[in-house]
C-alpha cells in the first residue's frame, strides 16, 4: 500500500467536507462581489487537486522506521489525558500524574520520572502562576496544593 494514496484520499475527503459545510456560506446582505464563500472553496479546491495528484501519482513511501507503536500510542494517550484533566484536576496534580509515565516512555526509571514530574509541576507553577501571572487551574484542592 502506498501511503501517498492514503494521504491523497484523506485530502479529498477533507476538501469534500469543506465543500459540504462551506457551500451554504452566504452573507445576508452582500455589498461586495466576493462573499465569505469563495476563499474557503478555493482552498478546498487546492487541497482536492493535490489529493487527486497524490492518488494518481503516488511517490515511494519513506523508508524511515517509525518508533515502536506501543510507545507512540502510550505517549498519545498520556497527552490526551493530560489535556482533558489539566483543568479538572488542576495544574500541579495533572502535571505530576502525567509527566511520570511520559518521562518513563523516554527511558526514565520510575523514581527519575517521579522526581521530574514533581519538580516540573511545582517549579513551573511557581514560575508561571506566581511570577509571570499566567493563571493556571488550581483544581479541587484549591489553595492547598
Amino acid at each position: 500500500m502506498k501511503t501517498d494514496r492514503l494521504l491523497g484520499a484523506t485530502a479529498i475527503a477533507v476538501a469534500a467536507m469543506m465543500l459540504v459545510f462551506g457551500y451554504a456560506l452566504q452573507a445576508p446582505f452582500a455589498y461586495e462581489p466576493v462573499g465569505p464563500r469563495a476563499f474557503p472553496l478555493i482552498a478546498a479546491g487546492m487541497i482536492a487537486l493535490c489529493g487527486v495528484i497524490l492518488v494518481l501519482r503516488p511517490g515511494e513511501p519513506s523508508s524511515e522506521s517509525a518508533g515502536p507503536i506501543g510507545a507512540l500510542a502510550a505517549l498519545c494517550g498520556c497527552l490526551v489525558g493530560y489535556a482533558l484533566l489539566f483543568q479538572p484536576l488542576g495544574f500541579v496534580i495533572a502535571t505530576t500524574i502525567f509527566m511520570v509515565p511520559i518521562a518513563m516512555i523516554f527511558g526514565a526509571k520510575w523514581w527519575q520520572g517521579a522526581v521530574t514530574g514533581v519538580v516540573l509541576a511545582v517549579s513551573s507553577y511557581l514560575l508561571f502562576d506566581r511570577v509571570l501571572e499566567v493563571v493556571l487551574p488550581v483544581g479541587p484542592f484549591g489553595g492547598i496544593v
Partner: peptide, 24 residues
C-alpha cells in the same frame, strides 16, 4: 536526557496554549 526534556516541552506547551483562553 530526553526524559527531562520531553516533559518540560509538554508542560511549557500546555501552559502556553492554556494561557490564551483557558479552555480544555
Amino acid at each position: 536526557p530526553a526524559w527531562v526534556l520531553v516533559p518540560f516541552i509538554v508542560v511549557v506547551s500546555a501552559i502556553g496554549v492554556y494561557s490564551g483562553k483557558s479552555t480544555t
